[in-house]
């Protein structure tokens, strides 16, 4: 008998890639994160066969919660067919045997880089957001030990000061994506670099949102039906990206988050960023039977929680 005969084959990975101890740790941290909405929970964060910073945080969560009966959708910047989304999806499917879909309604787990679907998610669905930088205070305090203390004290004064300075200098809030929010009236949270268009979708949502930063080793959660409020003033309001007058050239959709595509002639063409949604609109236009769920914003651009988004008076200065 040789040593080679005794050894197990080198080609051998456990279910969902991570060893069971690693998955158990992630699941425990998730439970803690759900119990303290918006609070960043540190975790060990194993290396995965995907480069760090390419979705390894979201991937560890998805791999830890997925079972063989799950249906997984993966999107990157809204697109199911973006190369990195494709790569993560085939890795998840390869390691867990889950079915995959581009239909937000069919998915049980949606892993996303920086978009939430236009169709409303429902109870029982899990949205896993990939997070590059979990710390909303980073811009005002790069040292994470000090930032942790500020969270403990709910000391967010520097954030309000920054917001005020933006209004004074530029006449408007200048934050693009990753607009900071307060969760359950307590923790300041980065919603990950989703556009402001998506930020309200986290508020009193039916689904569970798990946010995970693999490189920075922090995960946090927004449980279903939890208050999520962007920071704003009583007289200067949070504003989503203006989608007025934009029509998706592929599907005819309006008042959805649009990609701007510059044209050689200097004009701009628009495509709805949520490709799963576009696909269904196109199929419906062809006369195919397709179930399209209610969207967070209707075709007039009205958000489904009345009064949550406030129209800014033009002379607020």
């Amino acid at each position: 008998m040789t040593l080679a005969e005794l050894a197990r084959p080198a080609q051998d990975y456990s279910y969902a890639f991570l060893d069971e101890f690693a998955k158990r740790e992630v699941r425990r941290r998730i439970l803690k994160a759900i119990a303290i909405p918006g609070h960043q929970v540190p975790y060990a964060s194993r290396e995965l066969p995907i480069a760090r910073g390419w979705g390894t945080g979201g991937l560890q969560v998805t791999l830890s919660i997925a079972g063989p009966h799950d249906i997984v959708k993966v999107i990157d910047q809204g697109a199911d067919d973006s190369v990195n989304a494709v790569n993560l999806r085939r890795f998840i499917a390869r390691m867990t045997g889950v079915a995959t879909t581009s239909d937000a309604q069919l998915a049980t787990i949606i892993q996303s880089r920086h978009r939430i679907t236009e169709e409303r998610l429902r109870e029982g669905q899990v949205l896993v957001l990939q997070v590059p930088d979990p710390e909303p205070l980073r811009a005002v305090e790069p040292n994470i030990s000090l930032a942790r203390e500020m969270h403990a004290d709910a000391d967010y004064a520097l954030m309000w000061l920054g917001l005020y300075e933006q209004v004074v200098r530029f006449g408007t809030f200048m934050t693009g994506a990753s607009y900071p929010v307060v969760v359950h009236q307590r923790y300041l949270m980065s919603p990950s670099p989703i556009p402001r268009w998506d930020t309200p979708m986290l508020h009193q949502a039916a689904h569970l949102t798990l946010l995970s930063a693999g490189r920075e080793k922090r995960l946090y959660a927004v449980p279903p039906y939890t208050d999520v409020r962007p920071i704003e003033f009583e007289d200067v309001f949070f504003q989503v990206e203006n989608q007025q007058g934009r029509i998706c050239e592929q599907s005819g959709a309006v008042n959805k988050f649009m990609n701007e595509i510059p044209q050689p002639d200097g004009s701009m063409c628009y495509q709805a960023s949520d490709t799963g949604y576009v696909e269904k609109l196109v199929r419906r236009a062809r006369g195919e039977p397709v179930a399209i769920g209610a969207t967070y914003y209707d075709d007039d651009g009205t958000f489904y929680h009345p009064g949550y988004l406030k129209e800014q008076e033009p002379d607020h200065r």
Binding site: Q77, G78, H114, R115, T172, F173, M174, T175, G176, A177, S178, P193, I194, P195, R196, W197, E241, N242, F257, N259, E260, S273
Partner: peptide, 11 residues
């Protein structure tokens, strides 16, 4: 990064 870039453009 076109979604985040777009969001900054809007601001």
């Amino acid at each position: 990064h076109y979604v985040t870039f777009n969001s900054s453009l809007d601001a």
